[in-house]
Write a protein that binds this DNA or RNA. Structure first.
Lengths: 232, 232
DNA sequence: TTAGAATTCAAACATACGTTTGAATGAGAT
DNA sequence: ATCTCATTCAAACGTATGTTTGAATTCTAA
């Protein structure tokens, strides 16, 4: 092995990852230079290339470090509700699927103590990242989790066309990304945003997402789902 | 005046604006260089600085060119429904406000003939742009329109706390941006996206947005609006 | 204590960036 | 035809980028 605890390679790696994560949120991926990162981290310029090879690899590591835990929490929550439904012999409710997917990210985003709150801002902004390699990497990193959740959602909404479910899931991810990525756009018109309790964001968004999912299908008279109406 | 029709300064300006618009969508604002723009436009490198001064000014011009028309269409639609409601002595319906705001952008985004479809992709991605000056510029450019629509939405939902309305409008903008900015994120998991008719996006999204707006308020028993009750 | 590997460091690498310059070119007006 | 002014052009400007290098330093293990 290389080094023990205090100094040495391992801490340098973490300092770089933390600095990069913060700077990526503030300035974006491309606009954040290696020199900004190493200066913020308090390490030598060459340390990034020594520990990560290239800037692209560093970006991937910044995402991988948090995304793995996030998706594991999501899949664990999904397994839990699937198990509960199996025991009761009932079908999973769509609201449960949404909660299993979106609540972990919202908790990560609003948890002050956890370092992930900065990362969730970054992730929310990066979904629409034009950079090709970042999009490819994110899509690959998400493939399994997203596929599992879509299947669960299909199963929870038997009569509803899969296209419609897919689109609505897409819309929901957009609303969530906005909610997490920052309120800058609207903050100018209503100063009430900042003094709000960030924990209230979760029920607010979940309520909105469920309403959108249950909305009547376009061109249909009936609604997308009849089962839930349980969320007070 | 300087030049007549075919060649000359005016056409150069437009070629640069069109090229920049397209490249900004593909690569992002920072990753698009002056040399890429001028090469695509088929003009000399110095032409950008000659006609627009700096790259930042060019970015602003790219947005201003389309954003003015978009917001004028929105405000015209809002004035129309306000006039109609005034004549009937009735209150404006929230769904009408949403349609007045979101439909013009969706039409611009899905209209193949209009050059604005590329721009709407750009706009959707830029809402979460980390670049400070772009965010400030966009916020200023949107201030009037957004204020007018929020007031109309408040008036259409008396009884509902303004904070909740503000948040939900924020969520709706997120869902819309995602819908417009591209389906790349989900396209990998279901190949059904591309062969869809883009015109169907409008009713799909509008239905989702209305469902989200009408969802029960978090911590309340009743719904945000009593008019619809249409789900399931 | 010493050998050896891992890590840090200052300096330089080649390349790309946005911008500026000054001469060449074009068309319109006198 | 000549003057004039807007525009185009090739070339260079200074600066910043990501990456590499080779020597100095630090830590680990024998």
């Amino acid at each position: 092995m290389s080094n023990a605890s205090g100094r040495g390679g391992l801490e340098t790696r973490w300092r770089i990852l933390d600095a990069a994560e913060t700077l990526f949120v503030e300035h974006g991926l491309e606009a954040t230079s290696m020199r900004m990162i190493t200066a913020t981290a308090g390490v030598n310029l060459a340390a990034v290339n020594y520990h990560f090879g290239t800037k692209e690899n560093l970006i991937q590591e910044v995402f991988r470090r948090r995304l793995g835990e996030l998706n594991q929490r999501r899949l664990a929550a999904l397994a839990r509700i699937e198990e509960g439904a199996r025991k009761r012999g009932a079908r999973i409710k769509p609201s449960q699927v949404l909660e299993a997917f979106f609540e972990p990210s919202l908790q990560m985003a609003t948890d002050q103590t956890h370092g992930g709150s900065i990362f969730m801002q970054l992730l929310g902004r990066t979904y629409t990242e034009p950079n090709a390699f970042v999009r490819k990497f994110l899509a690959a990193e998400y493939a399994d989790t997203l596929g599992r959740f879509l299947d669960a959602l299909y199963a929870s909404l038997p009569g509803v066309p899969r296209d419609e479910i897919l689109w609505r899931f897409h819309f929901m991810m957009g609303a969530t990304s906005y909610a997490i990525a920052g309120t800058d756009a609207l903050q100018l018109f209503a100063g009430k945003f900042d003094d709000e309790d960030p924990a209230r964001l979760i029920p607010r968004l979940m309520s909105f997402l469920l309403g959108g999912l249950r909305a009547p299908l376009p061109g249909f008279a009936g609604g997308a789902e009849a089962a839930t109406h349980a969320d007070d």
